[in-house]
Amino acid sequence: MLAFALRRGLTLALTAWLASVVVFAALELVPGDPALMMLGVNAQPDTLAALRAQMGLDAPPLDRYLRWAGGLLRGDLGTSLTYARPVADLVAERLVVTLPLALLSLVMSTAAAIPLGLLAAARRGRGGDWAVLGFAQIGVALPSFWIAILLILVFSVGLGWFPAGGFPGWEAGVWPALRALILPALALAIPEAAILARVTRTALLDTLGEDHIRTARAKGVGRAAVLLGHALPNALLPVATVLGLQLSFLVAGAVVVENVFTLPGLGRLLYQAIGQRDVIVVQGVVLLLAVFVVLVNALVDIACAAADPRPRALS
């Protein structure tokens, strides 16, 4: 177990390092100069040179990469070229939008998916099951950014219940801030819920077929009690696995949905930083995302290996 965790840790470090090299190299090749971006069309060569020196862009690429990597080892993500502020601060500022957004959509999707999955499993082959399967099939097919636009159309443009975009900040109060996150979270949650409902249903039906459940049924335990008391706890592992894996897709989806709602989240920061050629910010954010995704994958693997010894025992 320890060896396994250690191996994953090493893999994680290697992947993160490779990711940072790839991003750095990519941005080196991208046409565009952050100093020119900052100073615009009337900038003179000497001012550009002065700003580049200020930004530390006058050093050769390898030196800049090493300086950045060195800072990273000391826990310093560097300073943004555009905003002239520490990347860690920028990320922290944006995380208070993206993290609640991701959590909210996660809560929404599980809160919808597990009851739906239960319903489908309980009514297997009947109307309720078909309705859930139909929702699952259609929900997966809806691109989240289109859902986002439709939600704006109905709830902002039509009913005026929620803002069409923007984020007032948490200091404006919990409700105004939450209000700005509800539609984006819903846009992300609907496809997630569709996937999760299906996984829940499948996992429940799988566990219902297992021996201890059959035994419980034979002992006279009611169908509902079996479903909730025995099958559901057993089904949660696969559901959690998929949930973990979906988390990384949620991050990607958030990039687009944050753009639809112009939310000042991590995804939008990254998107804008690419536009501004702010290498330091792009590297920092991509690295964090990459580490996050790899970490979640590793955790899911470890959890599966630890919780479910059956495959190995069987083979």
Partner: peptide, 12 residues
Amino acid sequence: FAFPAVLSAILL
């Protein structure tokens, strides 16, 4: 996989 598809496409 460390880069979600949309992200790597934006970078590329």
